[in-house]
Write a protein that binds this DNA or RNA. Structure first.
Length: 107
DNA sequence: GTTGTGACGGGTC
DNA sequence: CGACCCGCCACAA
């Protein structure tokens, strides 16, 4: 894409943190924000929405604090979300409808 | 420098 | 449970 801009320091921090999420587990936007050292859930969502490191940064392992999926590959609904659910299940994460049980998978 | 917006979160009603 | 509001930080125009 040519509309891509250079990732800022903050965004880089976010991608780095998300990349460390172990397979079979998930994290939340708020948790990532704290791990990054600065920013909030909103900022993290914004960064992941522009995720230029596609498969390297497993954005599908990041969900909302209330357990709902959030978004994937730049979308919050549609086919992309269906894929996100499938990937999580393939990694051993139980997905009930559009939700995840953070009690077991939210590190 | 100012304004609007967002893949959010927590609190209220 | 759902709907609503307010606060939060970073980014683009």
């Amino acid at each position: 894409m040519k509309t891509d801009r250079k990732p800022t320091e903050f965004e880089m921090s976010v991608y780095q943190v998300v990349r460390t999420i172990p397979r079979g587990k998930v994290s939340t936007y708020g948790a990532v924000a704290r791990a990054a050292g600065r920013g909030t859930a909103r900022s993290v969502g914004s960064a992941l929405a522009r995720n230029p490191f596609a498969p390297e940064v497993p954005c599908h392992r990041v969900v909302r604090a209330d357990g709902t999926l959030g978004g994937f590959n730049g979308a919050t609904e549609g086919e992309e979300m269906t894929r996100k659910t499938g990937m999580l299940r393939a990694e051993g994460v139980e997905v009930a409808g559009d939700r995840i049980d953070l009690r077991r998978f939210g590190v």
